[in-house]
Every structure is written in C-alpha cells, then in structure tokens.
Amino acid sequence: MHLLVCIKQVPDSGQIRVHPVTNTIMRQGVPTIINPYDLFALEAALELRDQFGGEVTVLTMGPPSAEDSLRKALTFGADRAVLLTDRFFAGADTLATTYALATAIRRISSEFGAPDIVFTGKQTIDGDTAQVGPGIAKRLGLFQLTYVGKISALDLHARTIDVERRSEGGVQLLRTRLPCLVTMLEATNQIRRGAMADALRAARATILKWSAQQAGVDDISQCGLRGSPTVVKRVFAPAARNEKATMIEPDEQPAEALINAIFRCRPALEIELAALARGY
C-alpha cells in the first residue's frame, strides 16, 4: 500500500512576535516545526503501513529549509520524502498550493505508484484554512473524507475504507472507495518516538527536491502569486474600541467595586444573573 502525507513547515506559533512599531511579523530567529495537525495524519499513515505493509511518502511545498521537516518525518519512520521548492511557488494561496501539490502527487504516482490514501492535517496553524486537503482531493478526483477521527476498516481487496467522520452534532460512519483523501482530526493518536534505526537512516537519506518543472508543472501561471485568485490587500492592527476600558482602581474592596461597575453598565444583568445563579 502506498500512503502519502502532505506536511507543512510552519513557524512555531508560540514564539512568534509582532514588531511593536511596524506591526509586521518578526520572523527572524523563530524556529520552525512540522504543522502540529499534520503529525496526526503522519501517525495514522504509519499505523496503516505497519498493519498492511507498504510505504509512506511525505510531501511538502516550501522553501529549501523545509527539508528539516521532511527529515524529521523520516525519523518518525516515513520511507520517502519529496520537497517541492521553487521561487515560482512563492506567494501561493490555497488554490495555487493545491495545483502544485496535486501536480507533484501525479509525478510521485508515476514514479513510485499511485497512493491509495493521501493524508493531510485538519488545518495549518499559519494558513489555518482547512482548504488544502479538499482542494487536492478535487484536483486528483479522490474521494474526500474530512475531519476523520478514526479509520475503522480498510479492505484492500474490495478497495473500500470505513471511517468515523466528525460532523455537526455527531459522528458519521462513512464508507468510500480507494483512492481517497483523508484529513485527520487532532488528538486522534500520538506521534511515535521513532526508532534509532530510522533516525540514522533519516540523517543520511536523500530527499527528492523538485522544482516546478521537475514536478511536472506545465502551466506556471497557475503557480504561486500569479496562480492565486485571492489577493491580500491590507494587513492592519485591529482598532481599539472608541472608549477605552473603564478601569476599576483597586481599592480595599476590588470585588465589590467590580460588581458594582458591571451592574452600573448593564443594570438588567443583575436580575438575569440572579435567575441564572445557582441557589446555595
């Protein structure tokens, strides 16, 4: 079985700072990590491989430094890594991203066999759109299974897959056919530590690095900034409210002062709160 996992290298959000004067993101020195949501997808793929045999390929589109994330994925036990990197990809929105990734997946299919399941994370922590998975599925004609909490059955002879999909107000148990695309929910598994042998192999492994042309892109105008229908017009700091917060100066009885201020602002609240409050 061939399992392909799309991972993205993202800045570690915990360490991002915004420049206090210019309001731009200060990226220098911010460490990068594999998008945390993608680790659930990677672990799900590794588990299927361990159970059914086969190979796991990890794929990322990003700057040359994204190689680090791929190598990390290899230490967890992925078998092959492909880095899609080219200045033509810069500035891609989700539509242009899915064009590039889908093109690369076609090339991977012709070299190493078509993936039975393509995995993505639920969303990224920087783009945060949850659109890239569905976009890839659509472009490659894969059946789409989003927000999957559990792969409950896989029948490689019948080529069917059963999953539990989180939906509004409940869980759908779905059956579809392979090949399909799965976006994994968070907290559904825990990424393995990775064996020593994998760490040694990862350090020496060759990572396939493809430019747009090598990946098989035939229409550069669909890549990067040019291929992106969305345009970011303005980046700005949110406005403060017209009136600043009324500050309660802490005195001997800060709690009473605060409660009085709350009910002064919203007199109706006192009655409503009394109705809501638990009787003791």
Binding site: I125, D126, P229, K233, V235
Partner: peptide, 15 residues
C-alpha cells in the same frame, strides 16, 4: 492573520 495582533483584508478580484 497568523502570529499575533493583525488582521488582513482579502479580495478575490478577478474570479
């Protein structure tokens, strides 16, 4: 948008 206290306005101009 990512990374703290910023908002961005996005257009789909030509589609």
């Amino acid at each position: 948008t990512f990374g703290g206290s910023l908002l961005c306005t996005i257009y789909t101009l030509n589609y």
